[in-house]
Design a protein around this nucleic acid. Structure first.
Lengths: 137, 137
DNA sequence: CAGAATCCGCAGGGATACTG
DNA sequence: CAGTATCCCTGCGGATTCTG
């Protein structure tokens, strides 16, 4: 863990320095590289409820292809956020589960998801107003 | 604001129902559509420290092009997260600022950014271990 | 200064077919 | 069942040029 107090996303004395050029900027980039794609957050959200096997995951996440589910799970496994357990049976059974590290992402991610839900009405209204303003011109 | 208690990203009674097929799934999609691109979170993070004009924003966010800054700001303005104030001078001066609604995003987004910083060492280690395991085979 | 418009490369991701 | 491999296409975003 490293100290990030001076880099948090909050007002500083002013904004004279370029607060996003260093660690904070990199943090955001890494974050987006890791969970900013189309499926990762959905997979994590689905796995937050417990262990699931491949086909179950696919059924829980409508629209995801085999290819993308595999790819997403591999990346998560590589990052240490998900474990993959292959049971040597026939037919094979593979179970996926969030690691303790992966579970630490649930809180922040859920907060952001809840933000999306809480603000959707306001944002839709703002959008309509904006579009009306543009159309009127 | 609508009730989302039953849809939060937490363990439910089990996972027998498809928790991501409805509101929660849509929330994540909308979230990613809105802030999942390459620059939006960086712009919001930069504006969290106060009012900035176009050129200042561009200087504070290394690597962003005029095109993408403009586009990002337009979207944020349209969603009601940022205000654009054109001062009728010559040369023109345009100032951008987070709206109260936009400011509500700072907390959740910062939490996620901090997660990225806090976990980067663990994730890098997991990655190295994974790659070593794969290379050894 | 703050943009609008245009061109273009390439990576994310969908559809499909095949395999241990 | 749980993948892998291949093809293909869309659109994100960079570079450049032009304007009020």
């Amino acid at each position: 863990m490293q100290d990030i107090e001076g880099l948090a996303w909050v007002p500083r004395s002013g904004y004279e320095d370029q607060c996003l050029q260093t660690d904070q900027g990199r943090a955001i980039r890494e974050l987006l590289d890791r969970v900013g794609d189309k499926w990762t957050l959905l997979v994590i959200g689905t796995l937050s409820s417990g262990v699931l096997r491949f086909s179950e995951l696919q059924r829980h996440i409508p629209g995801i292809s085999q290819r993308m589910l595999t790819q997403t799970l591999r990346n998560l496994e590589r990052d240490g956020l998900v474990t993959r357990t292959l049971h040597a049976e026939v037919p094979p059974r593979v179970e996926y589960e969030l690691t303790p590290l992966g579970r630490t992402l649930i809180g922040p991610a859920a907060a952001l998801a809840n933000w999306a839900v809480d603000t959707q009405a306001d944002i839709a209204a703002a959008r309509d107003a904006y579009d009306a303003r543009v159309a009127a011109r």
